[in-house]
């Protein structure tokens, strides 16, 4: 079972996670009529920017984050933003959007000038995340774990970051054992996704470049 401290930590993370909202004036643009590649590009860029702002707000509330060196805070966020966004998108595609919105978003992404070599693995990733039937708690904890990864580039004080990440890994491991009794490998599967996210992170710069060129 989760200890009372671990339960508090989980509730606290969930409370912060649930405060994440892209402003309605940004998300409603998704439903506007224009569907040119340029319009799709602009909408996705604005959503991504908004997404980063929301992610920073979540990160600021992670226990201990604000005690880290300021430049380490930036290095953690820079290193993880893309991965956290892919995770959030996976959650959104699998359970968050009202009916019809997911199709619209997918259509805009597919018709925004990004080449299929990036699109195909991306939607494959979202689909495979859906198959894991992750709860919101798991998405929240995994996002926090991704952000507090001590092995990002330019981190000076890795030990302090590790100390913040460890309790979250312990809660996630216990949570998986408690709520996925049918699959003893569930926790390992979630950690496996972190490797996959790193690959997306590496490809992301190339993807942006091809998007701009197109």
């Amino acid at each position: 079972e989760l200890t009372p401290e671990q339960q508090n930590l989980l509730h606290y993370i969930m409370d912060s996670y649930n405060k994440q909202r892209i402003p309605p004036e940004v998300s409603k643009k998704l439903l506007q009529e224009e569907f040119s590649a340029e319009e799709n590009f602009l909408i996705l860029t604005e959503m991504a920017t908004s997404h980063v702002q929301v992610l920073v707000e979540f990160t600021k509330r992670l226990p201990g984050f604000q005690t880290l060196d300021h430049e380490d805070q930036i290095a953690l966020l820079k290193g993880s933003a893309v991965e956290a966004m892919f995770l959030r998108s996976a959650e959104i595609f699998n359970r968050k959007l009202p009916i019809g919105h997911a199709d619209l978003l997918e259509e805009r992404i597919r018709n925004s000038g990004i080449s299929d070599e990036y699109i195909t693995p991306m939607f494959h990733f979202y689909k495979s995340m859906g198959e894991l039937k992750m709860t919101q708690e798991e998405y929240a904890l995994l996002t926090a774990i991704v952000i507090l990864s001590p092995d990002r580039q330019y981190i000076q004080d890795r030990e302090s970051v590790e100390k913040l990440q460890e309790p979250l890994l312990e809660v996630l491991e216990k949570y998986c054992k408690l709520y996925h009794t049918d699959n003893p490998q569930h926790f390992a599967c979630l950690l496996g996704r972190l490797t996959e996210l790193r690959t997306f992170n590496h490809h992301h710069a190339d993807m942006l470049m091809s998007w701009r060129v197109n």
Binding site: L42, T45, E46, T49, S50, V52, Q53, V56, E57, K60, H70, Q73, I74, L77, K78, A81
Partner: peptide, 21 residues
């Protein structure tokens, strides 16, 4: 507009809490 900023700028501004400035 925010969409013209790079990732690091967005992060720095959001961390300082003055994104609207």
């Amino acid at each position: 507009p925010a969409s013209n900023l790079g990732l690091e700028d967005i992060i720095r501004k959001a961390l300082m809490g003055n994104f609207d400035d």
